[in-house]
């Protein structure tokens, strides 16, 4: 395993950590008690996945770092998550659309990773796939429910799609790390999974009578550490205790 493999694991881990963090912000504030529990559940799954991935990355690095060193002691430019997951929760429509765009990608990604040439990655992906399948079902159902529900909900959903679509392209736009990992059969070939992701999104949006915009400029850079302004605030909150009182056990 190489430096590239570690970077690849960190990309996966950072996506899960940051999206889980955003979902955690809903805790106690969701539109319905059942939704509060569901969003927290997804946050738990994602944070748990991030933990596994950081542990593995730390092990491969072999410098005695822990999962927490990787989550709490790297700065914005070290983080490899896509721009989509760091976008603010906004209203519930934005949260659901963000989740839906991520889940549709994440599901196909992990389906592919379950056949990775790397045994650890394959095992991790197979295990996570069950959780991710639930996430995708949850967010897809809510896209349909809110797209179909009332005029108000439909308008809010369409607005959220229009706002967030610009971050949907980065997910399947491979960077150098992903290209290398795919060529070694460890990572997923994003070009290969893109049609399935697009088809799933189109199917759900059509059922919800929502429009996926065309010709949108796609933002990117997160995978290589060039982030939106939001990530710095996420990290300053998340890393506060570790930064203010370094080296302590909690």
């Amino acid at each position: 395993m190489t430096d590239t493999s570690i970077k690849y694991l960190l990309q996966l881990a950072d996506n899960a950590l940051i999206l889980g963090h955003r979902l955690g912000e809903w805790c106690g504030h969701a539109p319905e008690m059942e939704l509060d529990i569901a969003l927290t559940n997804i946050a738990l799954d994602l944070t748990g996945q991030a933990r596994n991935l950081y542990q593995r990355a730390a092990e491969l690095e072999g410098q005695g770092k822990t999962e927490d060193d990787l989550a709490y002691l790297r700065d914005v430019w070290d983080f490899r998550n896509v721009l989509l997951v760091e976008q603010p929760n906004g209203d519930f429509a934005h949260t659901i659309v963000r989740q839906f765009l991520f889940d549709t990608y994440n599901y196909c990604l992990h389906q592919e990773l379950a056949h990775s040439a790397d045994e650890w990655v394959a095992g991790f992906a197979a295990k996570s796939l069950k959780e991710i399948a639930y996430h995708q079902r949850f967010s897809s159902e809510w896209v349909v429910r809110l797209g179909d529900g009332t005029e108000v909900s439909h308008a809010k959903m369409q607005a959220a799609i229009d706002d967030l679509w610009t971050y949907s392209g980065e997910l399947t736009l491979p960077n150098e790390v992903e290209k290398q990992m795919a060529s070694q059969g460890i990572g997923a070939d994003l070009a290969k999974i893109k049609p399935a992701i697009d088809a799933k999104r189109a199917e759900v949006l059509a059922t919800a009578s929502l429009q996926g915009p065309t010709g949108t400029w796609m933002q990117s850079g997160g995978k290589d550490g060039r982030h939106s302004e939001h990530l710095g605030f996420i990290l300053s909150e998340m890393q506060f205790l570790q930064r203010a009182y370094p080296g302590q056990e909690w």
Binding site: L17, H21, G24, E25, C27, G28, M33, D36, I37, T40, N41, A43, L44, T47, G48, A50, R51, Y54, E67, D68, A71, Y72, E237, M238, F240, L241, Q242, Q248, W250
Partner: peptide, 22 residues
């Protein structure tokens, strides 16, 4: 939740608050 000092503590806290909702 957003300031929990370790991943382990964050998971436990999320689970606990979720239990309370339940």
């Amino acid at each position: 939740i957003t300031r929990a000092p370790s991943l382990r503590r964050k998971l436990i806290l999320l689970a606990k608050v979720q239990d309370e909702g339940g």
